[in-house]
Amino acid sequence: MKEYQPRYRGTHTVYVFVESPEVTPQDLSLRAYEAAPDLMIKETCFGLQITGEPARVAAVVKTLRALDPAHIFVKDRGFPPGDVRRCRANLGGARPGFFGHEFELSLIRFISHGLEALPHREGGESALDALERRKKKPLDPDRLKALFEAEEPSHG
């Protein structure tokens, strides 16, 4: 066994995903560099990865989110960018975890719509009630019994 000394100890890394018709990852990265030139910022195809002191990262995330709140999504990441244990440059193929993000990004337009619709729902029907109503109800035992005992008209 060999000794392990972590890099970037005490830092936080976050993913910033952008799925917007108006903001590109390049716009985001420029804005992030303006807001915090001392943080480690990596532009990717889906958005950015930002690494640095937790409070500074949170402040930059807040600034970036304000650009297009309904189309920018943020998530914590365990590894720093470019880590040899996770980076696809070293492993070949997609990064582990990519497929989950790919799947959720295919649904993200519905979430963006939901976020944009939130102000219009104020004072309307409770979403939790609407959710409950949409759930499939199990078959009532009395109804099942009635089905068993129903007499079919004979066709003979």
Partner: peptide, 23 residues
């Protein structure tokens, strides 16, 4: 605990987000 399924339409997305906020 809030039980959900992934939204498959804009209407479901609206309820999904609003339910999480209410919860």
């Amino acid at each position: 605990v809030l039980d959900l399924t992934y939204p498959k339409s804009e209407e479901e997305g609206e309820i999904f987000v609003a339910a999480i906020r209410e919860f």
